[in-house]
Nucleic acid binder design. Sequence first.
DNA 1: CGGTCCATTGATCTGCCTCAATTAACGTGG
DNA 2: CCACGTTAATTGAGGCAGATCAATGGACCG
Lengths: 253, 253
Amino acid sequence: MNMTENVLIRKLEGYAQLSDDDKRVIRELCGENVGKVAAHRDIIRDGATPDHIHLILEGWAARYKLLPDGARQITAFLIPGDFCDLHVTVLAEMDHGIVALAPCKVAYLDAKVLDEITSKHSTLTKALWWMTLVDEAVLRQWVVNGRRRAIPALAHLLCELHQRMKSIGLVDDRVFELPLTQEELADATGMSSVHMNRTIQSLRERGLIEFRMKKLRIPDVQALAKTGGFDDSYLHLRTTHRPSEEQHLQLEA
Amino acid sequence: MNMTENVLIRKLEGYAQLSDDDKRVIRELCGENVGKVAAHRDIIRDGATPDHIHLILEGWAARYKLLPDGARQITAFLIPGDFCDLHVTVLAEMDHGIVALAPCKVAYLDAKVLDEITSKHSTLTKALWWMTLVDEAVLRQWVVNGRRRAIPALAHLLCELHQRMKSIGLVDDRVFELPLTQEELADATGMSSVHMNRTIQSLRERGLIEFRMKKLRIPDVQALAKTGGFDDSYLHLRTTHRPSEEQHLQLEA
DNA sequence: CGGTCCATTGATCTGCCTCAATTAACGTGG
DNA sequence: CCACGTTAATTGAGGCAGATCAATGGACCG
């Protein structure tokens, strides 16, 4: 995988074969207006009506909702290549907030350009739709995951993050950046930070993960997947269903 | 609300102002190929690659996933006007199953027609996208709901179903058909059927719901919403943000 | 060197699960 | 119209995963 290439292109190529023209459109789009957001700052507030589309280029962010009692539920982790609000032209208000968990580089895209894409670039349009549908599939999996016991639930979440980071080329020899606190992981899985701590320790003791210095190492992905009952088919990656092509891509990388 | 009108049109009008041409397209689409599915039968199996799009015209269905231990997690309830698999042209395989919970009338739509719509009917395209995004917003809310205590979680779910049924004109004087067993409600909220029973009883005793003969009556919607911490803005209905228009629609009904 | 954030550990408490019956509702055939 | 089988609703009792409360230890930092 060409790591100097735009991360959104890397991501979309996990699904579609993009033409040079498609790639050019994306590169232009992402380069125009880029900003930085510090960790723990809101990228978009709940109830806001953003006037442009936010795309994460670097860093980690999270969708979240606040419960009446003040607790925070994270409903998605956003990594490079993920859109915050692809839907601005359709839905008026944000029904949740988005916060940077680590320092983020964010591209601000003109919403009008989206209309142009959907009318002129059918492959790209389909690829964007694919992203939305995968986000939905991930969410469905999170609903399921919320009902599992702490250990398989965490194992599953980490497998998902590993696979998604891998699909954009950010996993190096089973290690990837995971700049999340245990409390943030707890807010995502719906458990207390105390129990998240004990759950992490449990996975550590079993030799399934190594997690320190904001880096996660998964010595045996298969083993962790088994513990979490993880099957990546819901992520609908090309590589999921075409092992031969996956090897091909790995040779290129 | 014109109750003889196609249910999908009724639903989409909760979001967009459809032209007569838009409506004609939908009516033609829904009338061509219609079938029936008995309760407890799969409409689409997990892993299937449906060759046409399924639209619920009547009845109740559910998206579900099976956990490794055999438990069933319902991730969405489908009511008339809901699509089962609008995404067939983008995602190859179903990553979950869809089962009829009550006898269903289902329209089978030609997937090719969708491409035609997206290229020729921009309002309709946007409306379909809106549906997808609302489905996603509902899913996000389910993730949140999964972390709440049983009573507010159930109250919230019932408020959601009430609002969605109302938006397609299927609520009559605070009563609507809810042909679900307590076990099915339990599979949706992730609790045991035993505890679902006790939770229902609790809401009954508080006078918040009346539930028998497959009909649910909510004497005081506000009160139930308060118990569930329910705010319908995540459903992104036109009426949510335009109370004056809502009155207008009610007068028409 | 004190302050802040995060990870860790211990002890207690509880909402919900599980197991186990019983009762009610419903459909079906005799 | 009733006997019976099946499915759904209800009730009771006991157990546990994970919440909550409360501290301590460690890392980083101005």
